[in-house]
Simulated assay, not measured.
Amino acid sequence: MATNRSRRLRKKLCVDEFQELGFELNLGFKEDLSDEAIDAFLDAFLVDAMDAHGLDYVGGEDFGLVCLAKRGSVNEEQRAIVEGWLKGRSELTSVEVSPLMDAWHPETPIKSVV
């Protein structure tokens, strides 16, 4: 791909100075948890951990990506809040939260902020 892109194209592609960060979640639920309990957990997760902090979740009940609900990047503080919320839940047996990563191009390294 071309490396000499216009500012407008870089913005549309969410690259370089327009890179947007998010993180992945991997959740393990207790074996004996009912479907209703999982639905209640997901409802609480979306309201208390996502909406309350301006975040959005894309994925299924056990794996997904967390990103900002508007254009921009998730920061380490938001990542830590979500991780803490998840680790405090009794419905889960395991919680894996990835480091911050490029939400649009996961294979691309994170650009350092100068």
Results as ranks from 00 to 15, higher is better:
residue 86 L to E: 04
residue 69 A to M: 00
residue 71 R to P: 02
residue 9 L to Y: 07
residue 82 V to D: 02
residue 7 R to K: 15
residue 107 E to C: 00
residue 41 F to W: 10
residue 63 F to A: 10
residue 108 T to G: 00
residue 46 L to S: 07
residue 97 V to D: 06
residue 7 R to E: 15
residue 111 K to V: 14
residue 102 D to S: 08
residue 62 D to C: 02
residue 9 L to C: 06
residue 70 K to S: 10
residue 8 R to K: 15
residue 99 P to M: 06
residue 46 L to N: 14
residue 17 E to R: 14
residue 3 T to L: 13
residue 101 M to K: 13
residue 5 R to Q: 15
residue 57 Y to V: 11
residue 108 T to F: 07
residue 19 Q to M: 09
residue 33 L to P: 12
residue 61 E to H: 12
residue 91 E to V: 07
residue 19 Q to W: 02
residue 73 S to V: 01
residue 94 S to L: 06
residue 23 F to H: 07
residue 110 I to T: 11
residue 87 K to H: 02
residue 72 G to E: 04
residue 15 V to F: 02
residue 107 E to K: 14
residue 24 E to R: 14
residue 84 G to H: 00
residue 29 F to I: 12
residue 25 L to G: 13
residue 92 L to K: 05
residue 96 E to P: 00
residue 109 P to F: 01
residue 22 G to Q: 04
residue 44 A to I: 02
residue 49 A to Q: 06
residue 61 E to I: 12
residue 62 D to Y: 04
residue 69 A to R: 14
residue 104 W to C: 08
residue 37 A to K: 11
residue 89 R to V: 03
residue 53 H to L: 14
residue 29 F to R: 05
residue 68 L to H: 12
residue 82 V to A: 04
residue 44 A to N: 13
residue 10 R to F: 07
residue 87 K to A: 02
residue 88 G to A: 02
residue 49 A to S: 13
residue 5 R to P: 01
residue 23 F to D: 00
residue 33 L to I: 15
residue 58 V to M: 10
residue 94 S to Y: 06
residue 57 Y to F: 09
residue 4 N to F: 14
residue 105 H to P: 06
residue 6 S to I: 12
residue 56 D to S: 11
residue 98 S to H: 09
residue 53 H to R: 12
residue 26 N to T: 14
residue 23 F to K: 08
residue 51 D to K: 12
residue 65 L to M: 11
residue 109 P to E: 08
residue 79 R to D: 04
residue 65 L to P: 03
residue 71 R to W: 03
residue 44 A to C: 09
